[in-house]
Structure formats: C-alpha cells, structure tokens
C-alpha cells in the first residue's frame, strides 16, 4: 500500500490567532490543493505531497515585513519533512 511521496499528505498545525490569520491565508493561496481544518485553538492545513509557505505572499497579506523565522511563533506541529527553510520560503514535503 505504498503511496508516492508526491501524494502522501504533509501538513502543519498553526495556532489560531489574529496574527496568524494572514499566514494561514497565504498558505491556502500558495497551495491550491490544501485543505484547512479548524480544531480547538488551532488550525491544521494539509496538502498532498508538498506545502510551501512563501515570505512574499505572507507579507502582502500582513502589510509588513515578515521573515520566515517568524513562522516559529505560529507553528505548533507538522508532519512531513522540512525540505527547505531559507529567507524566501519554507517547504514541507516527504523525501521518498
């Protein structure tokens, strides 16, 4: 029952707050195949194979500068593998 890395869902749990709303909106916009679920106090975004968080998209929605390190204040948990975390984007995906 092996499923290809490109299809197995990855995801991230984010604290539900005013500050994080633009981050969640940005993730939804950049990952059209993603789904958003609300749980008590948190929001879970999942996406098949790959999920990307882009600095520019977050900044557009926040109306201020945002560095990707700041995502550490929002994230509760994730599943998948953090493939990339640089100045411009964070990518969560499976390797194999």
């Amino acid at each position: 029952m092996s499923v290809a890395a490109s299809e197995r869902p990855v995801g991230v749990d984010i604290q539900e707050s005013e500050q994080n709303r633009p981050v969640i909106e940005a993730i939804s916009a950049d990952n059209p195949a993603s789904t958003v679920n609300h749980m008590p106090g948190m929001v879970r975004v999942t996406s098949p194979g790959r999920l990307v968080i882009r600095r520019e998209t977050v900044e557009e929605r926040m109306g201020r500068e945002w560095e990707t390190h700041e995502f550490q204040l929002a994230i509760i948990s994730y599943f998948g593998h953090i493939k990339e975390w640089d100045d411009d984007e964070i990518v969560i995906a499976w390797d194999h």
């Binding site: 197995r8 990855v10 998948g80 499976w94």
Partner: peptide
C-alpha cells in the same frame, strides 16, 4: 496511523 504509518514510515522504507 495516518501521519506516521501512512506518511513517515513510507519515507523510511527507502
């Protein structure tokens, strides 16, 4: 079951 067996362990099978 979903996240670890369905996700991670398929990765580690490699």
């Amino acid at each position: 079951e979903q996240q670890m067996l369905g996700g991670l362990f398929q990765d580690l099978a490699y």
